[in-house]
Design a protein around this nucleic acid. Structure first.
Lengths: 140, 140
DNA sequence: AAAGATTGAACTATCAATCTTT
DNA sequence: AAAGATTGATAGTTCAATCTTT
């Protein structure tokens, strides 16, 4: 498992990165998952059906149900009935949600900049290219 | 979030790698978490106090409690009283656990080899070095 | 009091089953 | 029946509180 080989270096570097970003976000009361959902809602500029939010996040619908539960609990999102389809439920960002999103996005960008600084800039594109290929091949 | 920058490339590559390895392990009925715990128990060659297992896995003790619950449920591990300290509980691999570990380790190695093949060998050491540095600096 | 383990609550995520509306 | 969402179960992980033994 914790071999020295490159696969685990990648996995662990990924963990360290997300840990750092989560820590940077902590003072804002957001997690990466919440900030990400909020971003889609803010950018949509109109309430989104939960199913569409799930598509954009690229996760299962039941995950969105729970994520929106927590966001609603935080007062950052409200559920609204969809006037055009009574099966559908819309998620709308509240003013508090928009404000929180701005704070989170700022904190995240600052943390990203810090982490990025630990990386030789000349190498970044090269490594990104190599990484984008890995694990992408079909398994059969 | 899903910027194109290198940080997310690393995080996502890490996710793809673990997904692939988890899939490869699936037919053996093991997860990476279970295989890892099993590995420490097999290598110890003697039952381990749960606290020591937590130290080796590098996780919180309550996580080990639950992980060992699941492994015990699978019949791969047994809890034994510690004869020297009645506060302590020992985790012992069963014969089935040892066998399962071998199957899992084999499946994992095969999958690792496949993934590694997607990586230009000449680059591996270089990238590993760069990755090992990232996210390691103290936050203050 | 401190050490070892468990329990209960929370978060993120998945899957399978269910309920309502279309 | 299919689409949209929720619920309940499971996995893995953390933290705070608790219980037993030292």
């Amino acid at each position: 498992m914790n071999d020295s080989h490159i696969l685990w270096q990648i996995v662990e570097a990924g963990h360290r990165i997300t840990e750092r970003l989560e820590s940077a976000l902590e003072p804002t009361g957001l997690s990466l998952a919440k900030l990400n959902a909020l971003r889609y809602l803010v950018e949509a500029r109109t309430p989104l059906p939960l199913g569409q939010l799930a598509e954009r996040i690229v996760c299962v619908k039941s995950n969105v149900t729970q994520l929106v539960d927590r966001l609603e609990n935080d007062g950052l999102v409200r559920r609204l009935p969809d006037p055009n389809d009574r099966r559908s439920i819309l998620a709308a960002v509240t003013d508090a949600g928009r404000e929180r999103f701005r704070a989170g996005a700022t904190a995240l960008m600052r943390a990203e900049r810090e982490l990025l600084a630990e990386f030789p800039e000349a190498e970044q594109q090269h490594i990104a290219d190599l990484l984008s290929a890995i694990g992408t091949a079909s398994t059969g």
